[in-house]
Design a protein around this nucleic acid. Structure first.
Lengths: 200, 200
DNA sequence: GTTTTTTGTAAACGGCTGTTGACTTCTAGC
DNA sequence: GCTAGAAGTCAACAGCCGTTTACAAAAAAC
């Protein structure tokens, strides 16, 4: 029988992962973003997240406290349309559409994560607050009158709806790249809302 | 101590529900629609659905077999934009917007249920198939060229995004009635897609 | 070289889940 | 009235969940 050198590490086939707290922490966050985005808050389990990060679920708890706190940490870092809200208003529709349709399907994204928070009692309040203060309000300020808030909300709905069917379900009709007819339709539609009030 | 007349019904304060299989079945379906729509497929439990219908979870299983089959039964009855796809194309945007913004927040709706299917491995295939065959394809036929399918997908995204933020999260910015600025913006936006290709 | 702190694992906890089988209770047919 | 079957309840199952506790190993401090 093969002798085992130590009872706690029976085989050294997998080398012991180098202990680096900072990298482990970021790997947990990355795994959480991917799984929250693709499977939703309820369906992404702690064991699944831990396995994707290559560690043990107990360690996830030790790093982030609880699943809800991990969710908060996964989305509070980067959210918002800030990079698009520059002075060039004439091409913002094309830029946004190109950005979203260039990302590969099923990639982690803050918007997907927030959409999956719908219906989860313990995180949907957080999601609505973040979407209001970090997306709708800055967008409304950038759009300006008339009907700034309504147009901002409509833009959020267009982008989120497209993103939802592309990333979360996902549907084949939304699967193409940035040169599809759908991407250009979306660009024109966004631009139409940005340019002016869609009704007198 | 108060004597109990029978061990199986200790108190007759609540009269025994009249036994009507057909009505019970429809009450289960209604409760399932409401809870699937508001809490999502994963978070709506069988016990919760049964309690909302006034019965026992075992009875739900006996009527519908499993949770997934109940989900199928709850959505397959009514789905589609059929009622709106009439010959009058000039006002369809206003009609759709008025319809959606007239429904009270948190009411059961097939669209909400389908959106909540995102990320659930056992039902999202069914959701994408239903949305494709019952919504996108009829809508594309009704719209006609050019870019029929892309425009249909975009319309689905606009409606679903608005509906998601209004019903599922829900966000205050989407909470108003059919006379709000957002409703009229949405109507104009839908009409813009229906009327013609948003880009040459 | 020894001790302390950090980084990680292993196993278990209570609680909730969908589902099942055995059991009552009401109702319709004879 | 009696009985067969439908309608419904009850208690329990196995399995998964997030979380906790106890412990091992690596790194750092002294």
């Amino acid at each position: 029988m093969a002798q085992r050198k130590s009872p706690t590490r029976p085989r050294s086939a997998a080398p012991p992962r180098p202990r680096d707290a900072e990298q482990t922490r970021s790997e947990i966050l990355q795994a959480a973003r991917v799984l929250f985005a693709t499977r939703g808050y309820a369906n992404a389990g702690m064991r699944e997240i831990a396995a994707a990060a290559g560690i043990t679920p107990a360690l996830v708890v030790r790093y982030f406290g609880s699943k809800r706190d991990l969710f908060v940490a996964a989305i509070e870092s980067d959210i918002g349309l800030g990079p698009f809200l520059g002075p060039d208003r004439a091409t913002v529709g094309r830029h946004i559409a190109r950005y979203f349709f260039s990302k590969p399907v099923r990639e982690a994204d803050v918007l997907s994560i927030l959409l999956h928070a719908a219906g989860q009692p313990d995180v949907c309040d957080l999601a609505t607050e973040l979407l209001t203060t970090r997306v709708i309000q800055p967008l409304a300020r950038w759009l300006g009158p008339p009907r700034a808030e309504a147009r901002a909300a409509l833009l959020l709905a267009i982008i989120s709806g497209t993103w939802l069917f592309r990333q979360a379900l996902p549907m084949r009709a939304f699967a193409g790249g940035p040169d599809t007819a759908l991407a250009s339709c979306m660009a024109a539609q966004i631009q139409h809302v940005v340019d002016g009030p869609p009704e007198a």
